[in-house]
Design a protein around this nucleic acid. Structure first.
Lengths: 141, 141
DNA sequence: CTCCGTGCAAATACTTTGCAAAGCG
DNA sequence: CGCTTTGCAAAGTATTTGCACGGAG
């Protein structure tokens, strides 16, 4: 399964790029990232493989931010914050609902709860900083 | 502000439909819902007003589910569950992160956290039931 | 030869937007 | 009359899909 070169050269690259990235990238971002090294890489391939990764659970979709679906190669349970200023997605170390809680919710609601995601909204550190520097800021009209 | 009839006849209808709906509808759903009563209602108008409601905070966007953005007219803090079976969005009564926690996260991360959302994944009661009835179920190929 | 993965481009599908017409005070 | 809101349709854009090619066993 590691034999065939082209079997997964690009696929592996996509997965690795995703896992190494800290910015919870979009398909487009990964594409641009890999394009120089794989000049004949196609955006469709990136989408196809991202879909595959999500199905197999190797990758998690964070949902659509500003029109672009974002992905996370880090599947350990953690929360995120979506920056209203720049659209960045940052990891938030935080206790996530555990199995017990999912079970509890299942019992209370009649649903079969299998997963949970916690997403904060606000400003990322850079945008907080920028806003400070801008002083009274200029976007007030 | 309550005077002009057509000033907001449709807008009000859209907002009301959204607030009365229990299914966290999409723009399309609201459109179909209102179309019989407002035959000349346009889908664009629904989108425009939903955008306006979101900005003004009268309505909350729940993000994109199966390609359609879903909205919630109930802005009281609560969690949701997105059904993997049918795409339904159901309310989950659950304690949400309070101001103290948002502040704590802000301090720990350097972000300015202003809001939070909790979304569970799983099966809605109907789909749980359906799966039971289907017995060994038929979608195994 | 057969299968899997891919490039390319056309096709989808949701949402946004421009513009002129219409409502209301 | 002036401002807001809407209908309609065109435009926009992210994502998906069909098809044929290329590499590997």
């Amino acid at each position: 399964m590691e034999k065939r070169e082209n079997f997964s050269r690009k696929r592996a690259a996509i997965l690795r790029a995703l896992q190494e990235a800290r910015n919870h990238p979009s398909a487009e971002w990964i594409y641009r990232q890999l394009k120089p090294r794989y000049p004949d890489l196609s955006l469709g391939t990136v989408y196809r493989n991202l879909g595959r990764f999500c199905e197999s659970g190797q990758v998690v979709s964070l949902g659509v931010v500003e029109g672009h679906e974002r992905f996370d190669g880090d599947i350990s349970p953690h929360a995120h914050l979506v920056c209203a200023g720049c659209g960045a997605v940052v990891d938030i170390p935080r206790e996530m609902p555990g199995e017990e809680e999912l079970a509890a919710v299942s019992n209370e609601t009649g649903c079969r709860v299998s997963g949970a995601s916690v997403t904060f909204t606000g400003l990322c550190p850079q945008c907080v900083e920028r806003e400070k520097q801008d002083g009274t800021k200029e976007d007030h009209l």
